[in-house]
Design a binder for these strands. Structure first.
Lengths: 246, 246
DNA sequence: CGGGTCGTTGACTCTCATCAACCCTCGTGG
DNA sequence: CCACGAGGGTTGATGAGAGTCAACGACCCG
């Protein structure tokens, strides 16, 4: 068992223990889940819209994202996922996926068969509750994204998504104090915010000129967190951090 | 026990039974949940952003909606809820609400204390799974809304939300074959779609001129379902109807 | 009858999309 | 080692879709 997998599992267990009074059997059952490690190249599919899932995936390293396409081929990104996230837990409960999940970078995944997950959910209700909360937070983030694309202008949208990345990457241990590496093209940002790549570029330039962010390739530095937060109207309540770390 | 409550409960039980092999104890436990019936005027609050919930609410009659406000006072509506929906199930699992829930019309609610719900979730894992699926569908709808505000133009957004209402109100038994009563102001539609009331008005007029909808006050008739669907790019997959009725 | 809420319409403005050119970087292969 | 091409990012010119401001009309209720 490679080191990082161990770390990710332990972090998950700590997270779950915050949410319900787990007993030793819960811990055992969680670690006894069957899984296969898989290493994927950037852009490979985990789930395809219209299919039913055979596995749920725990991200060990790398990033993934979910998206949907409209009839006329426009893509909307629905969420990004970081190491420690259980992607597509809903796949084990819903018969058919309504969206697609793809790796964003090279990634290592622990694939867990949905059958084993369902069994775990019925056998260990407290674990099920803890996992349920993962999906609830996921939903809360989705709702904040509705606000993002529905109410904020381009500057606010980009600022907001940068704030969200800052929080979530820090929690995943992928961010230093000075900033973070964001392995995402401007096209991804555009599809996540409902803007065009051209306008994302302009907006990032503006944010940079205003001193709200600094960039070095895809490394994002945030010189003044409070200023960026207020440009974004960012309120981290929706991340439910009390359910994620102590 | 008034007649409609009985109907709503039975419909809920049938829905849950689709999702997990419930046994008699599950049914009993569900019906033994303590609750208080409450009748609310339009615009009253069920949940307030920043508070923690003491009850979750099963809608017996009437409509409700969830929303969030940005710093500068813009409101984004996140979802609408119809009779039979369990609103804010997440309130029993998350410590603090990240959004507000309000009645849209006069409504009757069965309020269930979160403690009893949590107990039910641990005692009856299959019921918990069935309820979990409610929240997963809710999340799936939220993701489709991201697509709606992120990718579609005004005409598509309004057409899409009208399609969604058509499906959901029909399932709730609130729609005839000719159309449905939509007890929603254009301001609500605007806040749900990220448009202004002025533009919603214009867009509805356009849809009407095109013959895609007919209106009589707030009654919406859809002369040609296929045409409206295609104007909306509507694909009902995201509603996961197989998990809602047989 | 008067006042409030809701919806419609017009005139004007502005943000963001579109189209297009050009740049940089990096990997590949001759 | 350099040429080439692809992917990603920046910039400019122009245009369209939606926002803003304002007036007015319809309806409902006290």
């Amino acid at each position: 068992m490679p080191d990082t997998l161990q770390q990710v599992l332990e972090r998950m267990l700590r997270r779950f223990a915050l949410r319900a009074p787990l007993v030793q059997q819960d811990r055992d059952a969680l670690f006894d889940l069957p899984f296969t490690l898989r290493s994927l190249e950037p852009g490979q599919w985990l789930i395809r819209e219209g299919n039913s899932a055979t596995n749920s995936a725990l991200i060990v390293s790398g990033l993934a994202y979910r998206h949907k396409s409209t009839i006329d081929g426009d893509r909307q990104i629905l969420s990004f996922h970081v190491p420690g996230d259980f992607v597509d837990l809903e796949g084990s409960l819903l018969s058919v996926a309504d969206h697609t999940v793809q790796t964003l970078t090279q990634a290592e995944l622990a694939l867990v068969p949905v059958g084993a997950l369902r069994q775990l959910m019925t056998d260990r209700p407290l674990l099920a509750q803890a996992m349920w909360i993962d999906t609830l937070i996921d939903a809360a983030v989705a709702r904040e994204w509705i606000v993002n694309v529905g109410q904020r202008d381009a500057r606010g949208r980009i600022a907001h998504i940068l704030c969200e990345f800052a929080c979530r990457l820090r929690l995943a241990g992928l961010s230093g104090d000075d900033g973070y590496e964001l392995p995402v093209t401007q096209e991804h940002l555009a599809d996540a915010t409902g803007l065009t790549t051209v306008h994302v570029s302009r907006t990032l330039m503006t944010l940079e000129r205003e001193g709200l962010v600094k960039r070095l390739k895809r490394f994002i530095a945030i010189p003044d967190w409070e200023k960026l937060k207020s440009a974004a109207g960012f309120n981290e309540l929706y991340l439910h951090l009390d359910q994620v770390s102590a």
